Amino acid sequence: MPRKPVYEQVIDDIVASVRSGMLKPGDRLPTIAQFAQQYSSSDNPIRRALWILDERGWIEVHQGKGSFVAPEPPA
């Protein structure tokens, strides 16, 4: 089975953390650089993952402030 692309791994991990309660609404996520280091990746797949999560309502991205778990993430 081929490995998932990095951006899908990031999405899956963040969604799982929110669902498990490890990440709570309002919690700040690591920076793009921190995620890139954690996943041994460049910035682009991390940016893509955060953009998708923002579009789906899981997180809110605030330019210059960071990314945060949405106040009411999807069930």
Rank of each mutant, 00 (worst) to 15 (best):
E60I: 12
I32S: 06
A16S: 13
W51E: 11
K4G: 00
I59V: 15
P30G: 14
N44K: 13
K24C: 13
A49G: 12
S67Q: 06
I52D: 10
V6R: 13
A33P: 03
G21S: 09
F35D: 02
V69Q: 08
M1E: 10
S20H: 07
Y7F: 12
S41V: 03
A70E: 01
T31M: 05
D12F: 11
R19G: 10
L23N: 01
S20Y: 06
N44M: 11
Q34M: 13
E72W: 10
H62T: 05
R28N: 13
P2W: 02
L23C: 06
S42Y: 09
S41Y: 02
V15W: 04
V61P: 00
P25N: 11
N44T: 12
E60K: 15
E60L: 14
L53I: 03
P2Y: 03
D43H: 15
H62W: 04
V10P: 00
L23S: 03
A70Y: 01
T31C: 05
I32D: 04
A36Q: 07
F68I: 00
G66M: 01
P2M: 06
R3V: 01
I32W: 02
D54H: 14
R48G: 01
I11G: 00
P45R: 10
W58S: 09
D12R: 14
A70N: 10
Y39M: 08
M22T: 13
F68C: 03
V18Q: 04
M1S: 14
P73Q: 10
D13C: 05
G64K: 10
P5F: 05
L29F: 05
D13Q: 07
P73D: 08
A16R: 11
W51P: 01
V61Y: 09
V61M: 07
V61D: 03
P2S: 09
R56M: 09
G21Y: 07
A33C: 00
G21Q: 01
D43G: 08
R56I: 02
R47A: 08
V6C: 12
M22C: 05
L29V: 06
Y7V: 02
W58N: 05
H62C: 04
Y39P: 03
N44S: 15
S40H: 11
V69I: 15
P5G: 06
Q34K: 15
P71G: 14
K4Y: 09
P45A: 11
G57D: 09
Q9N: 08
R48D: 06
V61I: 08
Q38D: 07
K65F: 11
D12G: 11
I14E: 01
A70V: 02
L29K: 04
V15A: 11
V15P: 01
W51I: 05
D43A: 14
R56P: 02
R28S: 15
Q63L: 14
G64C: 13
P45K: 06
P5H: 09
G57A: 12
E55N: 15
P30M: 14
F35K: 00
G64A: 12
V10M: 06
S41R: 05
Q34E: 15
A36P: 00
V6H: 12
P45D: 03
M22V: 05
A33R: 15
A33H: 13
F35L: 07
Q37D: 12
G21L: 00
R28H: 10
V6G: 08
G21I: 00
